[in-house]
């Protein structure tokens, strides 16, 4: 079994050159962005953007969660967490309910709102490149090493090593190590993640467990409910029969069986 891969994104090293976004567009054949670097927002035409926040580059793209919310909510299993770490989308299966978009805690999936038969669009971790032994397009072109690609375990060690360095002074927190069960995009920074626009206060518990708490009761409802309702039906029916029989006896006080 291949080891799960991940990205490590170091906010302190990003120089907002825009090379990763351009590589993403090239690989996914998306139209270029007209505005300034750092201004583009995620859309059906941009699966990876670097936003300029507090003079830093902030990467937004699919986090490739270890226990993905989107894959758990999809009624048809169009989203899949692969062994290699990528969360990929099977467009031939998707029926377009958009529950993945409603559920994603990082608000990542985008939709083709201008198409009559639209699909969900998002970063696929360059799944095709990875299984051919290449690294994802964005990590390959990053000139400063702000974005590195590797085994998830190794990258967590690497992040810890950087925390020990004297300069820059990092916030001692790897975003994505444990948030909602962990992600395959790990982010470290010298200021708090909430200030950079990432969702803060995410618990360690993966979100699908919240749904499962309700769904696991389904078999009980079916079997106990079925038995309970059948029982009620039988008891109330029996009661009516008894009442009818008593009326009958009251009408024939001699007790002769009819």
């Amino acid at each position: 079994m291949p080891e799960s891969k991940a990205f490590l994104f170091d906010v302190t090293m990003c120089i907002l050159c825009g090379a990763c976004g351009a590589a993403d567009k090239e690989r996914n054949q998306l139209p270029p962005f007209d505005g300034d670097i750092g201004q583009e927002r995620l859309s059906a035409n941009a699966f990876l953007v670097i936003n300029k926040v507090q003079d830093r580059g902030v990467r937004h793209s699919c986090m490739h969660c270890v226990t993905p919310t989107c894959a758990s909510v999809c009624p048809v299993g169009a989203l899949e967490k692969t062994q290699i770490g990528a969360v990929i989308y099977h467009k031939d299966i998707c029926m377009g309910c958009r529950y993945c978009m409603a559920a994603c805690p990082f608000k990542i999936p985008r939709y083709e709102w201008d198409k009559a038969l639209p699909y969900v669009r998002k970063c696929d971790f360059c799944y095709g490149r990875i299984i051919n032994g290449q690294s994802p397009a964005c990590a390959e072109v990053c000139p400063t090493g702000a974005l590195t690609f590797g085994n998830r375990g190794d990258l967590i060690q690497e992040a810890r090593k950087r925390f020990k360095a004297a300069s820059p002074t990092y916030v001692d927190h790897i975003y994505g190590e444990s948030e909602i069960g962990g992600t395959s995009l790990l982010i470290i920074s010298d200021i708090a993640m909430e200030k950079l626009g990432y969702p803060g206060d995410l618990a360690e518990n993966p979100l699908p467990s919240l749904t499962w708490a309700a769904l696991e009761k389904v078999p009980n409802v079916v079997f106990l409910g079925g038995a309970f309702l059948t029982g009620l039906w039988w008891i109330t029916k029996r009661r009516e029969e008894v009442i009818a029989a008593e009326h009958h006896r009251a009408d024939n006080p001699n007790g002769r069986k009819s």
Binding site: S72, C74, I93, M95, Y99
Partner: peptide, 19 residues
């Protein structure tokens, strides 16, 4: 988005999904 695939959940199962 793809109404003609409304039958997909009957064939392509994901028992983890409420939908």
């Amino acid at each position: 988005g793809h109404p003609y695939r409304i039958w997909h959940p009957l064939i392509m199962w994901n028992p983890n999904s409420v939908m």
